[in-house]
Simulated scan of single mutants.
Amino acid sequence: MKDTEYLKVKGTKVLANEWGTLTQFKVDYRRKDGRWQEQIREAYDRGHGVACLLHDPETDCVLLTRQFRLPVWLSGSDPFLIEAPAGLLEGAQPEERMRLELIEETGFEVSELNHLFDAYMSPGSVTEYLAFFTGTYHLKNKVAVGGGAEDEGEDIEVVHVPLRDALGMMRSGEIRDAKTIILLQELALRQFSVSKD
Rank of each mutant, 00 (worst) to 15 (best):
F80E: 13
Q24T: 04
F192V: 04
F108N: 14
Q24N: 05
T180D: 14
M170C: 06
R164D: 10
D155W: 10
A86V: 01
A188R: 11
D78S: 13
K142W: 08
A178W: 01
L183P: 03
K26Y: 07
A51N: 15
L183T: 00
G153A: 01
E96K: 05
I181F: 06
S125R: 09
R164A: 14
G87D: 12
T180E: 13
T65D: 08
D151C: 12
G147S: 11
L54W: 14
Y29W: 00
R190K: 04
D60S: 05
E112I: 01
G146K: 02
L187R: 06
D56Y: 04
S172C: 00
W73M: 12
C61V: 08
Q67M: 07
E38I: 03
W19D: 12
L88M: 08
M121C: 00
P71F: 15
E109C: 00
E104K: 11
S111K: 09
L187N: 08
R31C: 10
A119M: 02
E96Y: 08
Q37A: 11
L53C: 14
T136S: 09
R66M: 01
P85D: 06
E96R: 11
E174Y: 11
E58W: 13
Y129F: 08
R30M: 03
T21K: 11
Q39K: 15
T23E: 08
F25E: 03
L89T: 14
E128R: 03
T59L: 13
V27I: 15
A43T: 04
E18I: 02
M1K: 02
A92F: 10
D33A: 03
E95F: 03
R164I: 02
L81Q: 14
L89H: 13
T136R: 12
A86I: 02
M1R: 06
K10H: 06
L113H: 06
R41C: 02
I181T: 12
V72F: 13
K140N: 07
D33M: 01
E154S: 10
V50D: 10
K10F: 04
A51Y: 10
L15R: 07
G76N: 07
A144G: 03
R31T: 07
S195K: 14
M169H: 01
P57W: 11
L74R: 09
H48F: 06
L130R: 06
K32N: 14
Y120F: 10
H48D: 15
E112F: 08
V110Y: 09
A178Y: 07
L70C: 05
W36Y: 05
H138R: 12
S111W: 08
G34L: 00
Y29E: 05
S172W: 02
T106D: 07
P71C: 07
S75F: 00
Y137I: 04
E58A: 12
E154D: 10
A144V: 01
